[in-house]
């Protein structure tokens, strides 16, 4: 596990928001699994770290939570994206794309040289 990179600071919230956008309302465990799968099992994610991040998003109004029933009939707390959350996702995704694009230009082999 130690050879996998940790989740970078600040990107977890973005991943959570994106996951909720694609999957619709989802519980914490589901979100964690989904993030792991999407990363192709390349990320090392302590599921526990997800909960403070979810709480923070909830405090900021990006998501809301509600108790419900899971696919295999377990009681679970489901998180849902709000309008504020959608906007935040859009904004942060754009920022992130910009940042990676810039970095990519730095890191890609110099073409014109």
């Amino acid at each position: 596990m130690s050879d996998k990179p940790d989740v970078w600071q600040g990107t977890l919230a973005l991943m959570v928001l994106k996951t909720l956008e694609t999957m619709g309302p989802q519980h914490g465990y589901g979100i964690a699994r989904r993030i792991e799968q999407t990363s192709g099992n390349l990320l090392s994610l302590n599921y526990g770290t997800l909960y403070p991040a979810l709480l923070k998003l909830e405090q900021e109004g990006a998501i809301v939570s509600e108790w419900g029933t899971s696919d295999n009939n377990r009681r679970a707390k489901f998180y849902r994206l709000t309008r504020v959350g959608r906007k935040q996702l859009e904004r942060e995704a754009r920022n992130w794309e910009q940042a990676t694009a810039i970095l990519a230009r730095f890191l890609s082999p110099a073409e014109e040289a």
């Binding site: 519980h27 599921y47 009681r75 679970a76 707390k77």
Partner: peptide, 11 residues
Amino acid sequence: NAELESHLQMH
């Protein structure tokens, strides 16, 4: 605690 419990159960 309940949320954590349900998380563990599902896992």
